[in-house]
Amino acid sequence: MHTETHTGLESPKGIWWKPAHKSEKVWVGIAFAWCMVLFAMMPLWHWKGGQNPSGIRRRVEPAAFFARTQEFIQQYQVDTDRGMPIVAPPPGSDIYLTGMSFQWTPILKLQKGAEYILHLSALDVNHGFSLYPINVNFQVIPGYDYGLRITPNASGDFRIICNEFCGIGHHTMVGRVIVEDAPATGTPGTGGTP
């Protein structure tokens, strides 16, 4: 007898290290092959895909990151909305966004189709960067600089929802990102938005 007729509640007597029926072996083989496909997709997407969480990852003092954000605001501020600075950095530049309880600063004004390096960090506790409505999510951790190369592919008025619990005011923490169509004559990578 190569098969068992006992339940899982009974001790198998003697030797049970025996080959399985063909049907079981085939399923294990198919499952294994599928697991390899599942695995292969990740390196493949790093190589060919456009969305990866790799980024430029660094350690940073929260205060230093916040100071750099302030400097960035002074450099490129174009307007304010409800007391929050709106910043329009030139395409291709490093841009900074700080999360703190309970706000995202500053408001970013970007150009469609241009690449930026978006640096994310937190001043106090963990926050969650969730870009609405396109649903892109990253963890924002105090003490860590997460630099992501982003290229907005549509213009519009976007929101940043905080989706990591950061205290009792967590649900009031909303930021804003504005993406405008690139100027018709502008060549990306030269100068800022007026």
């Binding site: 940073v60 230093a64 900074y96």
Partner: peptide
């Protein structure tokens, strides 16, 4: 082993 940020 993460390096320190340069904040360019």
């Amino acid at each position: 082993t993460l390096p320190q940020a340069t904040l360019p």
